Computed example of a mutant assay.
Amino acid sequence: MSTRPTRSTQPDLLYTEAEDDLRSAVRSLLTGRADTAGLLGRIETGSPYDPALWRSLAAGMGAAGLLVPESLGGQGATHREAAVVLEELGRAVTPAPYLSSAVVATETLLALDSENDAISGLLKGMATGRTVAVLALPLSTAPGADLPGDTAVNAVADATIADVLLVVRADGLYAVERGSATVVPQTALDLTRPLARVSAEDAAGTRVADAASARAAVHRGLLAGAGLLASEQLGIAEWCLEETVRYTRERHQFNRPVGSFQALKHRMAQLWLEVVNARAAARNAADALATGSAEAPLAAAVAQAYCSRVAVHAAEECVQLHAGIGMTWEHPAHLYLKRAKADETALGTPGAHRTTVAELVDLPAP
C-alpha cells in the first residue's frame, strides 16, 4: 500500500500583487497585438504564429525565462507566474510555443546538470526567447508514460518553429538542430497549435543526458506541463463564460435579453461554479509545482482530470448559446472549442489522470 503524500504547509491559492501585475502586462500585450481577425487570417495560411508577438512576450517581457534561474539569464520566478502567463494565452488562444518550450522543454533541461555547457547554453537562449526548444514526443504523452526510442514521432507540438528538438533515444536525450531532422507538418484539430511528424533517428545531435537521467528529466518536464496546462484550460473557460454572459445580455428575443431566461441563467450559473472550481484546481497545481511539494503529481493529475472537462464544457456552451453566430468561422468560438478539445488529450487524457489520482490515494481506479 502506498501512502498519500502530504504537503508541509497549506497552499496559498490567491494571486499575489506581482502576479496580478504580470497578468495585466500580458493581457495588455495580447489585447493590442493578438487580434482575432488577424489570427483567423493566419491560421488559414497554415502559419498561425506571430514572430513579433513572441519576441515581445518572450524577450521583451521576459516571460520565456520565468522558470530559468537568474544565473542562466532567466527571471528566477516560479510556476505560479508561468501559470498566469498561460491563463492569458488561453484566454486569447494565442499561437505561441510557451507551453512546449518555456515550460516542458525548460523543465526537462533544468532537471539535468546545468553545469553542462550544452545545457546551460540552451537554457540561456531559451530564457531570452532567442531559442525555441521542443521535446520531440507526441503532445498526448502523459507524465510517467513509456517513452519511444530511436523512432519517428507523430503529433509533436510546435516542432515546425522549433530551433532545437530534444529527442529521446534508447541511450539518452539528445539536442538536435531542427535542420538536421525531418519535420513534416500534420493536420491538427487545433490550428493554433500545429503538430508535426519528427524523424530524427539518424540526425546528428549532442547528448545531454543518459537513459536513466533522460527518463527522470522528461517526467519532470511532462509533469510541469500537465500541471500548468490546467491554467491554460482555465483561461479558455473564463473567456468562454465571460463572452457568453456578455452576448446573452445584448442579444434580445421577445423584447428581453436572452440571458434573462431562467434556463440560460441556470446553465451559466452552473458553468460559473465549474470555472471557480477549475481555478482552485489549477492554482493548487501551480503552487505545488512552485513549492516542490511531494503532492505535485497528485495536484497536477487532479487539475488535469477536472480542468479538461470544464474547458470543453465552457467552449461548447459558448458555441451553443451564441446560436447561429457561434457556428460561423468569423466568430472565434470555434477556436476555443478546438483548443479545449485538443488540450483535453494533451499530456494525458482525463481518464489517464483519474487513474493516476486513484493510484496516488489508494482508491479503486475508475
Rank of each mutant, 00 (worst) to 15 (best):
M1K: 11
M1S: 15
S2M: 15
R4F: 13
D12F: 06
L14D: 13
Y15L: 14
T16Q: 13
E17S: 14
D21L: 12
L22F: 08
R23W: 08
V26W: 04
V26G: 00
A34V: 09
D35T: 14
G41V: 04
G41M: 11
P48N: 06
P48L: 03
Y49D: 15
A52P: 05
A58L: 10
L67I: 10
V68M: 05
G73A: 13
G74D: 06
G74I: 08
A77E: 05
A77D: 04
T78Y: 04
H79M: 07
E81S: 09
A82W: 04
A83S: 06
V85G: 04
E87Q: 08
G90Y: 01
V93A: 10
T94H: 03
Y98K: 08
L99I: 07
A102D: 01
A105P: 05
T106R: 02
E107S: 12
D113G: 14
D113L: 12
S114P: 09
G121S: 07
K124T: 15
G125Q: 04
G125R: 02
M126Q: 03
M126C: 03
R130D: 15
A133G: 07
V134A: 02
L135C: 01
P138L: 03
T141R: 00
A142P: 03
A142Y: 07
D146R: 11
L147G: 03
V153M: 06
N154A: 13
L165G: 03
L166H: 04
V167C: 07
R169M: 02
D171Y: 06
L173F: 00
L173T: 00
L173C: 01
R178G: 02
G179Q: 10
A181Q: 06
A181N: 03
A181S: 10
T182L: 09
V183Q: 08
A188K: 11
L191A: 15
T192H: 01
R197E: 15
D202P: 03
A203N: 10
A211S: 13
S213C: 10
V218F: 03
R220P: 03
A224F: 02
G225R: 06
L228Q: 08
L228W: 03
A230Y: 00
S231R: 03
E242D: 15
T244S: 01
R246P: 10
Y247H: 11
H252D: 12
P257R: 10
V258R: 02
H266A: 14
A269H: 14
Q270H: 14
V276G: 07
A278E: 07
R279V: 09
R279E: 10
A280W: 07
A280T: 14
A285N: 04
A285K: 03
A285C: 09
A288I: 06
T291I: 11
A294S: 12
A296D: 02
A301K: 00
A303E: 07
V310M: 00
C318L: 13
V319R: 04
H334Q: 15
R339D: 07
A340P: 05
A342K: 04
V357C: 08
V361M: 02
V361W: 01
